[in-house]
Computed example of a mutant assay.
Amino acid sequence: MTRAGRWLLRAALALLPLPALAVECRDIDLGTNRFTVCEARAAEDIRLFLRDETGAVIGHFSTLADRLAAQGQTLQLAMNGGMYHDDRAPVGLYIENGQQEMRLIPNAGPGNFGMLPNGVFCIRNGRADVIETLLFQREAPACRYATQSGPMLVIDGALHPRFLPDSTSRNLRNGVGTSADGQRVVFAISRNLVTFHEFASLFRDTLGLPNALYLDGKVSRLYAPQIGRDDPGFWLGPIVGIVTPAN
């Protein structure tokens, strides 16, 4: 797809009505690759979760869903929400309900997290944005919730410069992308092993999003009861979720 074609697609997608539900999920097949995509308005109650009131790591979607249910709330969507150490502490910046647990890491480092440019998913009142780390450092937006991860998948409409179309490195992958006005928030997870280039292209060329952030690979999991997804697995670190009042 040409650059002009991508921008026309992006403009057309921006005119589409936003989801009527808190979150709407669908499957997308692109050639031999299969993805699940869940889209929400930034005005929805999007949060990050890591620990309970005792400081213990929540770790599982079921634990989080039960805790919210006891508070009269429903977990509509959840996904692993950023990279973490063996003790489940976040690798980079982590802010939950205005409280910062981990600082921003602006420098390059090992692994996918340190493959610059990386970025921050920042949730504010009425908008949510994926922001490249150095830009985030300069602008210092007041995020109520924030998680740093990496690498960036899409940066201002361009794929990460280190992603190769002919790469043979494949994995399950999940990430989040946002629109330029901060009103569309799209979470995606692959249903088969994909390259970084293929995954980033989903956000830019199919979903029409100018910025997107990789959240993780092997641990990628989705909780989306509306489509029957409650992926099992080991304990997670940060979890990103969308919450509504219980019916």
Rank of each mutant, 00 (worst) to 15 (best):
H60I: 02
N97Y: 08
G109K: 01
Q71V: 00
Q76R: 15
R103K: 12
V57S: 05
L104C: 02
S62P: 03
Q73W: 07
S62V: 09
F49I: 07
D52F: 03
S62L: 11
G72E: 08
L93D: 08
P106R: 04
L77R: 05
G55P: 07
G109Y: 07
L104H: 03
A65C: 08
H60S: 11
Q100D: 09
R51S: 02
R51V: 06
G82R: 09
A78Q: 09
G111Y: 01
G98R: 06
G92M: 05
Q73N: 12
I58V: 15
A56V: 05
G81M: 06
G82Q: 10
V91T: 12
L64A: 02
Y94T: 02
L50F: 03
A56D: 13
M79G: 08
N107W: 11
F113E: 02
E96M: 01
N97R: 13
Q99V: 12
L77Q: 05
Q76E: 15
F113C: 07
Q73A: 13
L77M: 10
R51T: 14
M83L: 05
D52K: 03
P90I: 00
R88P: 10
G98N: 05
G98H: 08
F61K: 02
L48E: 10
D86T: 12
D52A: 11
G98S: 03
Y84K: 01
L68K: 11
L48N: 07
Q100T: 13
V57E: 04
Q73K: 15
D52H: 01
